[in-house]
Simulated assay, not measured.
Amino acid sequence: MTVILAPPYLTEQARHDWELLQRQTAAASPFEPAAADLLPEPARRWILRTIAPGTPLRRAVVLSMRGTIRLGSWRRFHATQVLLPLEGFVWCASAYLGLLPVHGYDRYRAGTGEMRWRLLDAFPVMSGMGPDITRSAAGRLACEFVLSPAAALDPRVRWKPLDERHAMAGFPVGGEDYEVMLAVAADGRLEGVTMSRWGKPDKGPYREHLFGVECEGETTFDGFTLPAGIRGGWWPGTARWAEGEFIRFTIGDALFR
């Protein structure tokens, strides 16, 4: 299977992660609906809607998306992301500050998170590494497992029911355990995902904040049905959502590997 080439502005380490994370899933067995029988009812409904019977359970995915991101004000962006749930991601994007292009990436793999953004590929706009960036990136990875639904059947994922619409998924990322709550409609549509994530959206010190996404519509690729549109940010479902929301995008393509 052809490797999707990395953008030219990636560092050597980010390029290595990009190539490693999109390797084809070994021995991807076809999905059998009975495999969802032991999941909590909301998660079972979601899996039966989101994975067509017989679909190879590939977990690595390359996503393309476009939308708006809040960088002071709302600005248009387009991005490509390599995602392997529970293992890592590299999200590469391009946006504009006025007429000037900003390129960069966020990444997490093997216990290390990083962000690196440059104006005109030369002048630093925002960069960071270290324990706080890593912990926040690991939380993002945990939240995004729903973009590769086969990951929900990974034996490392521990499911528990909450009520008729909500189920909790718990699993390890980078040596820490994370819990992610899914909200699922009666027909199996994924409505949203929330979790406690490390960050500093209020400009204070790093600490845990409510984080999540709201899902809109559906789109299908390679037998997997994903949310067509996503709105993400801090404090979803609260009075601070308008303040905390920072990204809105639609998924244009998804290649499962």
Rank of each mutant, 00 (worst) to 15 (best):
G113T: 03
W198Q: 09
T80N: 01
G67H: 00
A122C: 09
A93S: 14
R257Y: 07
A60G: 13
D121R: 14
I4W: 10
L190F: 10
R49L: 15
G233R: 00
E243R: 15
G104Y: 02
P149R: 14
T219E: 09
W117M: 06
V173D: 09
E191Q: 15
P131M: 06
R118V: 05
A6R: 08
I51N: 06
G229N: 02
W198H: 13
G237I: 03
D222A: 11
A142V: 07
R116D: 03
A151L: 07
T250F: 03
G104N: 05
T50I: 10
G113I: 05
P85E: 13
E216D: 09
D154W: 02
T194A: 12
T55K: 00
Y9H: 15
I247V: 13
I69A: 11
R23P: 01
A254Q: 10
V62L: 04
D177W: 03
P155I: 13
E164A: 15
L57C: 09
V102C: 08
R107H: 06
H78F: 11
T219D: 05
R44C: 07
L255C: 01
S127H: 14
Y96V: 06
S73A: 13
W74Y: 11
R240P: 03
R197V: 12
V180E: 11
A79S: 04
P227F: 12
R118E: 12
L162T: 13
T25G: 09
H78L: 02
V146S: 13
F249R: 08
L38C: 14
R59S: 14
H16K: 06
S94W: 05
F145P: 04
I47L: 15
E208R: 08
R118S: 13
A6Y: 03
M65H: 14
F145T: 09
T68S: 01
E179T: 09
A95S: 11
G98N: 07
L20A: 11
E216W: 06
T80Y: 03
A43L: 13
D37N: 15
D121I: 04
D132H: 02
G252P: 04
G170I: 02
H78C: 02
T80E: 01
L153Y: 00
E19I: 15
E144H: 02
G217H: 11
A138P: 06
I133T: 12
I4K: 11
L153D: 01
G252S: 08
G232P: 01
A183Y: 09
E41L: 14
Q24P: 03
R116E: 00
R75K: 12
E41S: 14
G212L: 03
A28G: 04
P53W: 07
W234C: 05
G223C: 05
V61H: 04
E41A: 15
L97H: 08
L97K: 08
C92I: 01
E179P: 00
L120T: 10
Y108M: 00
E164S: 14
P33L: 06
V125M: 10
P201A: 02
A95K: 00
L120K: 11
G223V: 10
A122V: 09
T220H: 05
E218Y: 07
